[in-house]
Structure formats: structure tokens, C-alpha cells
Amino acid sequence: MNYWSAIEIKLKDQIALASQLLLFMLGSYVFILAEEHKLWKILVLFFGLIAWLFFRNKTKHPIIWIVFFVLLTIDLFYSYFWVANHHFMLVFMVLSVILFSYHKQSDILLKNIQLLLVIVLLASVMQKITSKQFMSGDFYYHAINLGGLFKFFFTIFPESLEIAKSNSESLTTLKELNPNLTEHIVLKDVFPNLSFVSRVFAWLTVIFEFLVAVAILWKPKKIGTHIIFIILLFGILFTRLETGFVSLLAISGLYLCKNIKLKLLYVLIILGCITLIITKFGYH
């Protein structure tokens, strides 16, 4: 068996492949959230499974996608302010795929995905620019000093991990006190020059996200666009294992990509993220 040609055949139709991977991601995500608001979900799942089992080949309606969409909408209805941001992205992507199953025009689906990706990135840039806490580097400084970001660094530098733990303990102690009586604590830096590094990192994040958004808007199929987008995905994963969000971004990238090697890289990122979500090593 020629393994590479089997891979090539699978990678050829990226719309079918990306939709299949989106379905994997949806399955694991919905399964994790299944316990919340379960009364409605039991009804939707039960009747959805019956409809899928008996009528999936006899109807033009994409039963499985509609069932997932309804399940996501239930969470949105009951927990609009509590669900993760990528829950919204998932809803938009599933809606686009459902519409695609009726209009069958791939250019419309790809335009939907391209614009969604641009909106997500530009919204993220706008939120950062309008947040003084982010642009001053204070947010990164706080998060890194408490060990919330770059966790893999802390495994290499155990002394930094000790400082992060001590900062967290100080904060826990502070939280137990009456805030009217307590003035402040001083966080210890887990790395030298963290204040400067945090500020530079904040600006770099904004600039890079903006560049990627413009590239996807301007040249969504170019190899260069996908290379910088993949660098951004790895950047997010190294900063924090946001596997749920990154898998959706990578699926969007796969929809738009034409290069076979980059398509394969996207698939590996997506499968890696889904594996980490299922094993709860990463965030869903």
C-alpha cells in the first residue's frame, strides 16, 4: 500500500476533510458539555439519533449537523455569558456548513469561513488595543507571574515555578482578607525583566494577529498567509494549551488551504488538538 498516495487522495478535497474534522471536534466538544442543561439535550439527542439512523439517506437535510447546531444553541440560550468564545465560532461554522449542504456552492462556504476567521482575529486585536491592562503589559505580567502562561517554561526552570507558586499563595491569602483593610502585595518576577518582556510581547501579539488577519482577508489561499497563520497557531499553543480554540482556527485554515503539505500540517494540528481535548490534557 502506498501510504503517501492514500494521504494525498484524502487531502485532495479539503472541504470534505475539514467538515469531517469539524464533526470530530463537535462530537468531542458536545460530549464534554453534554451534562449541562441535560433535560433538553436528552430529547434532542434521542430524537436526533432516531432521525439520523432511519432517515439520513432519505432526506436532503443534514440531520447530524442540525442536531449539533441545536445542542450548541441550547448551551448558548442557557449560558450565553458563560460559554467559551470559540463556542460562538463553532455555532457560526456549523451554520455555514448547514447552509452549504443546501446551496452546494463551495465559494460561498469558503467566503463564510474566510470572513469568520478575519472577524475573529480583528475582534481579538480590537479588544487588545482597547484594553489598557493588555497594552501596558500588565495582563501578561500578572498571568506569567502566577504561572498561568508558558507552563512548559516552568518545567525547565523549577526555581521560577517556586516563585509562581509563592505569588499564587500570596494572592490566595490576600483574597481571604477584608479588601477595605489591605493595601497591596508585591508580585515577585518569575523571570528577569518580565515587565519589559510583557510589554514587548503584548505589542508583538497585536501586530502579528493584525498581520495574519490582513493576510487572510487579502490573500486567503497564498502559502505565505498559511505559514504565518500556522506560526500564530503554534504561538497560541505554546502560550497556553487552548486546544479547543486552536483546533477551530486550524479547521478554518484547512478549508482555505490549497497546498498539500500545509493541509497535512493543519490535519496534524487538528488531530493533535482533538486528542488533547478528549484526554482533557488541553482545554476544550
Partner: peptide, 24 residues
């Protein structure tokens, strides 16, 4: 006064998490 972290505006990791707010 909604936290940037929630509500579908993709503002996660742009300010200190609301978990650190304290009710007294």
C-alpha cells in the same frame, strides 16, 4: 461592565480574569 473574557467578543486574555474579582 461585562468582562472581556465572555460574551462572544473574542476578548479572552486581554485583561485579568474575572475569577480574581472579590465580593465582600
Amino acid at each position: 461592565d461585562l468582562s472581556r473574557w465572555k460574551g462572544g467578543g473574542f476578548g479572552m486574555y486581554t485583561e485579568i480574569h474575572y475569577f480574581y474579582n472579590q465580593i465582600h
